[in-house]
Design a binder for these strands. Structure first.
Lengths: 222, 222
DNA sequence: GATTTACTTCGGCCACGGCCGAACTATCGA
DNA sequence: TCGATAGTTCGGCCGTGGCCGAAGTAAATC
């Protein structure tokens, strides 16, 4: 256990893992950049994370793509972040990029940020979902609503990640919808081209169609 | 974030935190023993954990009692343990004590081990609860059942830890019932004197009354 | 085949941090 | 008042591990 925590406990590796929390697979060089260390150092770190099975790797030509090994790793990182937020306040520089990240971003496989929390709030306000601190529940009308929206809940259920999990948003400090339902919802939003990834970041762009859709279905203006 | 992980990443501190996962407040000396380091070293570690707000401290005479700062810390530790279990296998000596721990123990504020998983299975079999990998739900008949047993669910609800959370048991590798419901259930079991803490450990003893009660209410023989 | 790019291994430097011995403070009990 | 017990701070030792420069492989490009 201490070994796993120690792996996350190094700043360089923590940065890499955070970058991978975006949900996409990244190359060693990209991870070197986001960690702010040299390629050699990165290589060593990635080896450790891989050997400990926190990451999985795919060779593709001369690139090596690394991804988080699964939702359990993402959830661990979230819970560590959550504890870190309750700790003594620390100064953290705000950049232009952070603004976009704060607005909408991917959190492993679902939507976070102002928009993510807004979605959760809207669904809660409509009685589609009940969110507590440690668990959430989709209501019957929520299932119907998501079905109408075209979200594939049966596939989500079959994955044994049955219900929705409230995921504490580390910028908004309030829960958004994670788990299988969150993933399915985000997937549908991508399919509908409501949201698009911003190149080289975890940030998400809301498309004009997305604005209309969010307003129509969720009464949410962004 | 890396700071928090690094705190857990030291073997001595990890041992202390694991000991505190039992849910009780422990003195510095007790923690020194469970970490296997000298009192001076322990003092330093506890200071760090306290400053980072992973622990809270209560002075009582010449003793200083340390506890986990809250459920969020317990959940973080669990999720790290969970990832550690998916890693490459490691040899871990089995002792006499471990046998008892494996059978029944506290997991922060609820029941874990063979008995904990058995309780969860029994409740699932009776349709009192539906457990997924990331979330759980108490059914209407489950609420009624727990009420009959004398578990105070209204108090649990008011804590904003509304529903039950599946907590992956690190010995059984299957979920048991955590969250507010798990805590309330464990509390009631203590009240009924079905279970008792074993001195100086996290292990739990099932009393004769407990055997009868578990059989009667849960169809569970231990 | 030659060059560039992606990533690796090797080797050595260096500092952070865990550890304990020693000495100090505070509370309890007689 | 005087140990005894719980816990502390201080100082120095030492090992682990992160870091980069240099040099090496593997795949794409010319």
């Amino acid at each position: 256990m201490a070994e796993v925590a120690a792996l996350v406990g190094d700043p360089a590796r923590a940065n890499m893992l955070c970058a991978l929390l975006g949900g996409r697979a990244l190359t060693a060089t990209e991870l070197a950049y986001s960690a702010g260390v040299s390629p050699q150092t990165t290589s060593g770190h990635l080896n450790k994370l891989f050997s400990a099975r926190l990451l999985v790797m795919m060779k593709q030509g001369r690139h090596r793509y690394y991804r988080l090994a699964g939702p359990h790793v993402a959830q661990m990182l979230e819970s560590i972040m959550n504890v870190a937020l309750t700790g003594p306040p620390r100064f953290q520089p705000k950049s232009r990029l952070d603004e976009k990240m704060r607005h909408a971003r991917t959190c492993y496989d679902h939507i976070a940020g102002v928009v993510g929390v807004g979605l959760a709030d809207a669904m809660a306000a409509h009685g589609f979902v009940v969110l507590g601190d440690e668990a959430g529940e989709i209501t019957a009308s929520g299932i119907e609503f998501l079905d109408r929206l075209g979200v594939d809940l049966t596939a989500a259920k079959s994955k044994r990640r049955v219900f929705c999990r409230p995921c504490l948003d580390w910028t908004e400090r309030r829960p958004h919808i994670g788990g299988a339902v969150g993933a399915a919802l985000a997937h549908r939003c991508f399919d509908l081209k409501w949201i698009e990834r911003v190149r080289d970041t975890r940030a998400l762009m809301i498309t004009p169609a997305g604005r209309r859709g969010l307003l129509e279905y969720f009464d949410l203006s962004v």
